[in-house]
Design a protein around this nucleic acid. Structure first.
Length: 375
RNA sequence: GGGAGGGUACCCAAGUGGCUAAAGGGGGCAGACUGUAAAUCUGCUGGUUGACGCCUACGGUGGUUCGAAUCCACUCCCUCCCA
């Protein structure tokens, strides 16, 4: 259930309530694809970094360990020791990311497992069934994440199919709710597609909002298009998204992307970036992005950021973290990811406070100049 | 004292007349990363230059040759075996 608390222009402050807890929006969902945060973080660590809601993946957990096993063990929350809200992505992104390993048909997608090559079929019903077994709080519709650039004619054809898939997702989701769900409170979010063709985006969002789902996502962005194209696409779609439902911009993004999307009316985000880039040595701060592997930090006794209250910045120096990277110690990755997730969660906290105090306009102006800068 | 094998760039190591400023690793230095096939991938790593080029370089010195890391002589070091 979503409650809109306040608006500053299009930026929204809200509260999303689900069976596993309350989420204050705008929110960044911390990504734990395989029921773990890459870089060696556990559910307990998610609390330390201020995580409100976690995201896991249908395709990956279906392949390993298998959703039947997770259901048998009491669901994903219990399995990974996390009792906060969980959103599961549907497998639709893997149609994009594992493009060389799949064939799309009307009935669904024939994957060859990236692990061992075996045939794995996933359609709307399978995705819903797996997510039902996982027992996440929010299930995502099975969609095709379309690469950009793609021909108009292909995008149109794909959007029509994703809309037909949504019909099947809704029916299966309702059916499973009645039978033997791991989490009877699970809700379904729909996903808008259309690449950067505004007319297709609008046609598609109109079509999927007819299902009156618990929330709506904008998918298929940040897949190669210019940032400006992404912002314009959000603006085009946003007008047609229900005001009383959460809006989720999937897979985005940089701190500046997030600010710009909040500015255009988005509530939910998720991105691999703080975890992946952290593992690769890029650390996000209020002053910009630093590469902790750089030589200039070899004897720097300061924390990553003086303005940061994360567990890493409270105890360790840049020199120490750089050393951990150089020495190939996994502790370095863990610290980097912890810091970055803490930063992203703090960024969202800052955004919420700004909207609450009607200072978001100034917050945006200040930070879009700073946060993507390399320092 | 006798015999054998070696000395190549920061390190290890390939190369036995021109296609070699020198393979491949490691190390070092940078960059990329957006619903995670990523503790990954890419580039650079003798000097100078925007580039062409020029200079310096395969233990040292001196030769042979149009041309040498590569062939010859002497020499200095290292490892192993025998006495």
């Amino acid at each position: 259930m979503f409650e809109l608390i306040k608006k500053e222009k299009k930026a929204r402050l809200g509260v999303y309530k689900c069976s596993s807890g309350v989420v204050h929006t705008p929110v960044f969902m911390n990504v734990g694809t395989q029921a773990a945060i890459k870089g060696g973080l556990s559910a307990k660590d998610l609390e330390l970094v201020g995580c409100q809601i976690e995201l896991s993946n249908t395709y990956h957990l279906h392949l390993r360990p298998g959703d039947q096993i997770i259901k048998k063990l009491g669901g994903l929350h219990k399995f990974m020791g996390y009792n906060g809200p969980i959103l599961t992505d549907s497998g639709g992104f893997q149609i994009f990311s594992l493009a060389r390993l799949r064939k799309i048909k009307e009935e669904g997608v024939y994957f060859n497992s990236h692990i061992d090559g075996r045939a794995v079929f996933m359609g709307p019903e399978e995705s819903m069934s797996i997510q039902s077994n996982l027992g996440s709080d929010i299930a995502m519709a099975f969609d095709e994440c379309i690469k950009i650039p793609s021909d108009y004619s292909y995008v149109k054809k794909s959007c029509d199919r994703t809309a037909r898939w949504l019909q099947r997702c809704v029916e299966e989701h309702n059916r499973l709710k009645e039978t033997n769900p791991t989490n009877p409170e699970q809700v379904l979010f729909g996903i808008n597609q259309g690449a950067i063709y505004h007319d297709l985006r609008i046609e598609h969002i109109k079509r999927i909002t007819e299902f009156n789902l618990a929330g709506y996502a904008i998918g298929g962005l940040a897949v190669g298009e210019a940032a400006e194209d992404m912002y314009e696409t959000i603006e085009a779609v946003e007008e047609y998204m229900p005001a009383n439902k959460p809006r989720y911009l999937m897979g985005v993004g940089t701190p500046v992307n997030i600010i710009e999307a909040v500015y255009r009316g988005v509530d939910f985000f998720d991105c691999v970036m703080p975890a992946r880039n952290g593992r690769h040595g890029s650390l996000f701060t209020w002053a910009g992005i630093m590469n902790i592997k750089n030589e200039r930090y070899k004897d720097d006794e300061r924390p990553i950021s003086d303005e940061c209250n994360c567990p890493v910045c409270k105890s360790y120096s840049r020199a120490y973290i750089r050393h951990l990277f150089a020495a190939n110690e996994i502790l370095g990755l863990r610290f980097a990811v912890m810091h970055n997730l803490f930063f992203y969660n703090s960024l969202m906290e800052g955004i919420r406070a700004a909207v609450k105090n009607e200072e978001f306009e100034g917050f945006r102006r200040k930070y879009i100049e700073i946060l993507d800068r390399r320092i």
